[in-house]
């Protein structure tokens, strides 16, 4: 084995070198990660700036830029534009586009002439670039997917009234809906669930079909495929059967969720919010 020829000291030196290399490898790895693509639009990522430069840039931004462009860089109306949607910022790789703007060299930006040190200007540009990498897909601002305001804006008492008037033919607060507010703890999920008639994690009710060909016994089973020409059903014994449709073939499809879908045009937004506010109380 080649290793056996090595002296102890050289092994130690290698071990030390490996230890020293770990952070470097991690850095390289993270750089490699970043080089892949941006989550914004799959474009190649810019080179990553050293964290200490970004941190210095952040401090300078807060002191000199934030009052007009906001802490989140999304600007203040009629005072400072949103930097995150600025083409000049988005195309910047290493300061070539941002730095002249920060220095106030572009027309109409004389009020930018605050930072004079070259390194300070570069640091602010580095900080801006670091935030640009946080833009989400389809141009969403940083942190957009984390925002989740409380959607409970309805009136539970009105929701109870609506439920009792419109839903109790099929559902009851003491029966199938008992504890629904506990079973589905997220009000947003609960709202989707009752409107659709089912929700993620619960099996979708089976759609069945009855096919009646002239002079033949009706075939009934789980609807696998239906179109204008063919119907495929899975029979009770587990076998599948495909039937060619003719103008005389009668096909009835029974979708348990169809009734729920047909209610969609009847809801007002207030109905929806009220019913949800009521259902969350069914703990």
């Amino acid at each position: 084995m080649p290793e056996s020829n090595r002296s102890r000291s050289s092994s130690r030196r290698i071990a030390a070198a490996v230890l020293l290399l770990i952070p470097a490898v991690i850095t390289l790895y993270s750089v490699a990660q970043h080089i892949e693509t941006s989550k914004f639009n799959e474009a190649p990522m810019r080179p990553v700036d050293p964290p200490q430069v970004v941190a210095a840039g952040k401090a300078l931004y807060e002191k000199n830029c934030q009052s007009c462009h906001s802490a989140d860089l999304r600007g203040k109306e009629n005072i400072g534009p949103n930097i995150l949607r600025s083409q000049d910022a988005l195309v910047d790789m290493h300061g070539e586009s941002l730095e002249p703007i920060i220095r106030g060299e572009k027309a109409g930006l004389t009020n930018h002439r605050i930072l004079t040190e070259k390194d300070d200007v570069a640091a602010v540009a580095a900080y801006v670039r670091s935030i640009l990498t946080e833009i989400g897909s389809q141009g969403r601002p940083p942190g957009d997917s984390l925002r989740s305001p409380n959607i409970l804006v309805g009136d539970a008492a009105s929701g109870k009234q609506y439920f009792e008037a419109k839903c109790t033919r099929c559902h009851s607060a003491e029966g199938d809906m008992k504890g629904i507010g506990k079973k589905i703890s997220s009000p947003k999920t609960l709202q989707s669930a009752w409107i659709r008639g089912n929700h993620f994690g619960v099996p979708v009710p089976v759609i069945t079909a009855t096919v009646q060909e002239p002079g033949k016994p009706a075939v009934e089973g789980t609807a696998i495929h239906v179109d204008d020409f063919l119907v495929t059903v899975k029979l009770q014994d587990g076998t599948m059967q495909t039937i060619r449709r003719t103008p005389q073939t009668k096909v009835e499809v029974h979708d348990p969720l169809e009734a729920h879908r047909n209610l969609l045009p009847t809801y007002t937004d207030k109905d929806i919010h009220d019913v949800t506010a009521y259902l969350v109380t069914l703990k």
Binding site: R74, K76, E77, R85, G139, P141, R147, P149, I272
Partner: peptide
């Protein structure tokens, strides 16, 4: 269902908010 998730009066960006 269209939920407003970013009620910031400035509005969001792109297809966000």
């Amino acid at each position: 269902l269209a939920y407003l998730t970013d009620p910031d009066p400035r509005g969001a960006m792109g297809l966000g908010g």
